[in-house]
């Protein structure tokens, strides 16, 4: 018996439809409390006290990986080199790279799942450069769509914020200090960062800055929660343009969308670093291809990122609670 190409295309389309239909279930089931025993999103106050931060730490940067990721803290070699180089350039910064933003129950695709064996196989093929690995991208892309959906987004994004908060706690973030947090979202991770921003801001009560590295962003209302959004877009990066096309809120035709209002307020800054593509050769993280000025693409990206991170708000010099107390005392005295 031979399998015709029509059958194969039909099977792929059926898989895509089923995968897309099932994609909101993890977030919705988590919210509804159907998955007991999995990581929950406890309010910070309920959690155990965080470890003390290093004395020379000035800022916290959380990196949310792109849709090619399958597990937390497991990066493709190019991305791993990027994170190591970024950490080396920011000695006074805690760089958090162990967040898997495409599972709000924080379960790796290759971890405790029914189809973990399947994802392990796909991931192993991906590391060998097989196109089969693109299934992981598709699976994670659906999670980005869940985050961008006006119905599911608020649920998914609260889970995303919980993941980031738990990661900050693991890395000794001083809650209540108002220490600024910078989020770097690569590709689909940009949307997850954007969606999580209002919930993070509510919990941390600290300035949040978002750097989107070729991010596929929708017109998320969460944009109002960030101090500033730096959107890095390479001139050869057609993937980040998907966001401009498929999300109507980003069309110039709709001036009242969250995105366009934020642009009008100067909250969004578009950074055009040069002829970068989204990934692979000539991509933001490519450490082999050289630009006309002699730097590799990775070095140029690092220069841009470090410059932007250093422009982010400085950490407060003293605890925020004292400041607010002093301000409230002053406000009591004034009428007298």
């Amino acid at each position: 018996m031979t399998i015709s190409p029509e059958w194969i295309i039909g099977l792929i389309l059926a898989w895509l439809l089923i995968a897309a239909l099932l994609s909101p279930l993890e977030a919705l089931g988590w919210w509804a409390g159907w998955f007991r025993g999995l990581e929950d999103a406890p309010p910070v106050a309920e959690a155990s006290p965080p470890p003390a931060p290093a004395p020379d730490t000035h800022r916290y940067v959380a990196y949310l990986t792109g849709i090619a990721s399958a597990a937390e803290g497991v990066h493709l070699p190019r991305e791993q080199r990027f994170l190591e180089a970024l950490a080396a350039r920011l000695p006074d910064t805690v760089l958090i790279g162990d967040i898997f933003p495409y599972s709000i129950t924080h379960r790796a695709l290759t971890g405790q799942r029914v189809f973990a064996w399947f994802w392990r196989y796909v991931f192993s093929r991906k590391t060998q450069g097989s196109p089969v690995g693109f299934l992981i991208n598709l699976r994670n892309l659906f999670q980005v769509l869940v985050s961008a959906d006006s119905r599911y987004g608020p649920i998914y994004n609260q889970g995303g914020a919980a993941l980031i908060i738990n990661a900050l706690r693991r890395h000794g973030y001083p809650f209540g200090s108002g220490t600024p947090v910078t989020l770097i979202g690569y590709s689909g991770g940009g949307q997850i960062c954007l969606g999580a921003a209002p919930y993070l801001k509510a919990m941390l009560k600290a300035p949040i800055t978002l750097i989107s590295l070729g991010g596929v962003l929708c017109s998320d209302p969460g944009i109002t929660a960030v101090e500033r959004l730096y959107h890095i877009q390479g001139s050869r990066d057609w993937v980040q343009r998907i966001g401009e096309v498929v999300f109507p809120g980003r069309w110039p035709l709709l001036p009242n969308s969250s995105w366009n209002r934020a642009r009008a307020q100067g909250r969004i800054e578009i950074i055009r670093p040069g002829p970068f593509s989204h990934t692979g050769k000539g991509g933001y993280l490519d450490d082999e291809t050289r630009l006309p000025d002699g730097r590799t693409c990775l070095e140029a990206t690092l220069d841009t990122l470090v410059g932007l991170i250093q422009r982010c708000p400085p950490p407060p010099t003293r605890p925020r609670r004292r400041r607010s107390l002093r301000r409230s005392r002053r406000s009591i005295r004034t009428p007298m």
Binding site: P43, V44, A45, S150, Q158, P198, A202, A225
Partner: peptide, 22 residues
């Protein structure tokens, strides 16, 4: 109404309540 149910302002209030309780 999902917008009412999942309004980020509710999250803010819940967070503020936790701070106050603490």
């Amino acid at each position: 109404d999902l917008k009412t149910l999942l309004d980020p302002a509710r999250y803010q209030r819940r967070s503020d309540d936790h701070d106050r309780d603490r």
